[in-house]
């Protein structure tokens, strides 16, 4: 009962704040709403037994990635505003965009609603279990991921650097 209540609470929180993310005209507010979505998703991860992923979602995503995002949006200042929705595109374009995403959502809901799926059994994603699997079965992907992060840092620095010498 409690679990059901929590699931629907977090689900409604996620969907409403996600709609806010895509509809709010100010990017700063949209980003803060995305943090609310992340918090709701982390609650859902906890319900699914993925404790480590839920914490990583809060600490890494909501705590680090989106804060960098916030800094960049605030530094852009005047560029971080957007035209109102009705002036942004012509209606002839907005109509198929809405129809496409609504149709895709309806298709997924109808397809998944009837599909026979196994019952959830909640593997315990504690730090201990995740760490054991990560460093036993996924050691090589883990190392590649660290290399990818390093390359990302290099790319970001070399892209955003001011070309004073040139």
């Amino acid at each position: 009962m409690t679990q059901k209540f929590l699931f629907y609470f977090f689900a409604v929180l996620c969907v409403t704040s996600a709609l806010g993310v895509i509809l709010h005209p100010k990017p700063t507010r949209a980003l803060l709403l995305l943090i609310v979505t992340m918090a709701g998703l982390s609650g859902l991860f906890t319900l699914l037994g993925a404790y480590f992923v839920a914490m990583a979602q809060l600490v890494v995503y909501a705590g680090a990635v989106l804060v960098i995002f916030l800094f960049v949006i605030m530094l852009q200042g005047i560029a971080a505003v957007e035209a109102p929705l009705h002036q942004r595109f012509r209606g002839i374009y907005l109509l198929p965009a809405g129809a496409l995403s609504l149709g895709l959502a309806a298709f997924f809901v109808l397809m998944l609603h009837k599909m026979p799926l196994p019952a959830l059994q909640m593997p315990l994603g504690t730090v201990e279990n995740i760490g054991k699997t990560l460093f036993r079965d996924y050691l090589l992907p883990f190392e590649w991921a660290s290399l990818l992060i390093l390359l990302g840092v290099f790319a970001a620095v070399s892209l955003a650097k001011k070309d004073d010498a040139a």
């Binding site: 996600a18 959502a105 809901v109």
Partner: peptide, 13 residues
């Protein structure tokens, strides 16, 4: 799926 479609709509509009 709903969250994914909301994100897709966001990219389009």
């Amino acid at each position: 799926a709903l969250l994914f479609c909301i994100g897709l709509l966001g990219i389009l509009i």
